[in-house]
């Protein structure tokens, strides 16, 4: 066990947890930020995607030790009022079905738009292909990213 200091969604958080605890469980179990989901625990599905110093990162494979002192953004911090263009686009295109993977989808897409404000279908496929969706919302995800890109 050790103490760590992480800035999550702009707020400094101190936690006392095992050194190897993945950030995912720090967020979910220690801090109650359950918007970030558990899907595979092996970095294979993208459900737990957060931003680590702006980079889309798998929280299930990132130990708390590694992120000590870093800035983390989770889905709860993307906006507090659904105002992020991707959230607006997700609503307009009715993207989510069960919704379980969508936090991870949106966080990956947000990181894409930070770097590329007008992505092609190809760019979207490349950026998003490690995020699995069992309900099959891919076509709408693509449309929603294009829609959000127009708003930015």
């Amino acid at each position: 066990m050790a103490r760590y200091s992480i800035t999550i969604n702009g707020k400094k958080q101190n936690v006392n947890v095992a050194e190897d605890m993945p950030l995912l469980w720090v967020l979910r179990d220690e801090l109650g930020l359950t918007g970030t989901k558990f899907g595979c625990g092996r970095g294979l599905c993208g459900t737990c995607t957060i931003h680590l110093d702006g980079e889309p990162t798998r929280a299930c494979m990132t130990s708390v030790e590694y992120v000590d002192g870093s800035e983390i953004t989770t889905i709860e911090g993307l906006s507090t009022d659904l105002s992020h263009p991707l959230q607006q686009a997700w609503i307009a295109e009715e993207v989510p079905q069960c919704g379980y993977c969508q936090s991870g989808q949106i966080m990956t897409a947000a990181a894409l738009l930070e770097k590329n404000s007008d992505p092609s279908d190809e760019d979207i496929n490349t950026a998003m292909k490690m995020n699995l969706c069992r309900c099959g919302t891919y076509q709408r995800i693509r449309k929603a990213i294009h829609r959000a890109a127009k708003e930015i």
């Binding site: 918007g35 889905i75 959230q87 009715e94 989510p96 936090s103 949106i106």
Partner: peptide, 20 residues
């Protein structure tokens, strides 16, 4: 418009795994 769509876009939707 989907009644649950906003909460599925901001992480607030509560699945079984989220119950505390």
């Amino acid at each position: 418009p989907g009644k649950d769509t906003p909460s599925r876009a901001n992480g607030k939707a509560q699945f079984g795994i989220d119950i505390r």
